[in-house]
């Protein structure tokens, strides 16, 4: 087997070298091309006030204190606390609501299961702007517009994408384990908590990660509900307006951008495996 694999290129060593060079140079060029914008943001963030407004590409002096100046210009800590509250509470809510729903859709047998799953997929395809009108009206009646609660509370009830993703993960865990637990006298709930959840931990981690990223990135939601109440703004909202109020300090806008991008990128570096798994698992059939 291995000899066959090695014989695969079969052509002259010149060809193979050319191939090696081509693969590497395209790979390097792509990697640089796709990351340059991000690197450039970082470079601009540490430029002096004056240089940031020039067409220079490389900082003459490195002003790392720009990152601290951002905190003086705007209540970044407050925005960060709001963003964290939104993302953490939503992730907690998804764990409580989506795990049982996904279990019922993946591993319980009942009439109408497929129809309900179709509804979940349909809900996933529903743009948030489409249902914004009746929901906004409802939250006005509850007196909660201007806060982040209209964004957090729904996650404690349901989130279509998380249910979908978790169901795909649960399907990969053999039914036999659950059947065995039930023969031993477990109820559905115990089977879920004791058997399925421990086995599906990577999938649950990926779902939590996606939920955190999605809410951290959310712009439309906070804009709609907290747009007029600055005290409840999230980082993404603050960033968009930072530029408007600090027109000249372009380097500081970029420093704020770095501060907002950083958590997601750090989170990704730590959890790269479950992140990639999460994306690829959406394709599991069933």
């Amino acid at each position: 087997m291995s000899t066959i694999t090695q014989a695969k290129p079969r052509k002259g060593s010149w060809d193979r070298k050319l191939h090696w060079v081509a693969t590497h140079s395209i790979g390097i060029a792509l990697a640089i091309g796709f990351t340059t914008p991000i690197v450039f943001v970082f470079l601009t963030a540490v430029m002096s006030d004056k240089q940031a407004l020039s067409s220079n590409l490389w900082p003459q002096e490195w002003h790392f204190e720009n990152f601290l100046r951002v905190f003086e210009k705007a209540p970044m800590l407050e925005y960060m606390a709001n963003s964290l509250m939104y993302s953490l509470l939503a992730t907690l809510g998804v764990m409580l609501s989506a795990i049982p729903t996904a279990y019922a859709l993946a591993r319980m047998k009942w009439r109408g299961r497929n129809a309900v799953f179709l509804l979940v997929v349909a809900a996933m395809m529903l743009p948030p702007q489409v249902v914004a009108v009746p929901l906004y009206d409802m939250w006005i009646n509850f007196g909660l517009t201007g806060t982040l609660w209209p964004l957090v509370i729904p996650y404690f009830l349901f989130d279509a994408f998380s249910v979908f993703l978790l169901r795909q993960f649960f399907l990969t865990i053999p039914q036999d384990y659950i059947d065995a637990a039930k023969i031993d006298g477990c109820s559905e709930l115990t089977a879920l908590v004791r058997v399925l959840v421990p086995m599906a931990r990577p999938g649950i981690a990926a779902t939590a990660l996606f939920c955190f990223l999605f809410t951290w990135n959310d712009y439309f939601g906070p804009l709609l509900y907290t747009g007029e109440n600055k005290g409840n703004w999230t980082l993404s909202l603050a960033l968009a307006s930072f530029r408007g109020s600090h027109q000249v300090e372009w380097n500081l806008t970029m420093a704020a951008t770095v501060l907002i991008m950083a958590p997601a990128i750090v989170l990704f570096l730590f959890a790269q495996k479950s992140f990639v798994k999460g994306i690829t698992f959406t394709g599991v059939k069933g």
Partner: peptide
């Protein structure tokens, strides 16, 4: 290559 996907869309 994955980095752009992680950048907050507004950013």
């Amino acid at each position: 290559m994955i980095a752009p996907f992680l950048v907050v869309p507004v950013a």
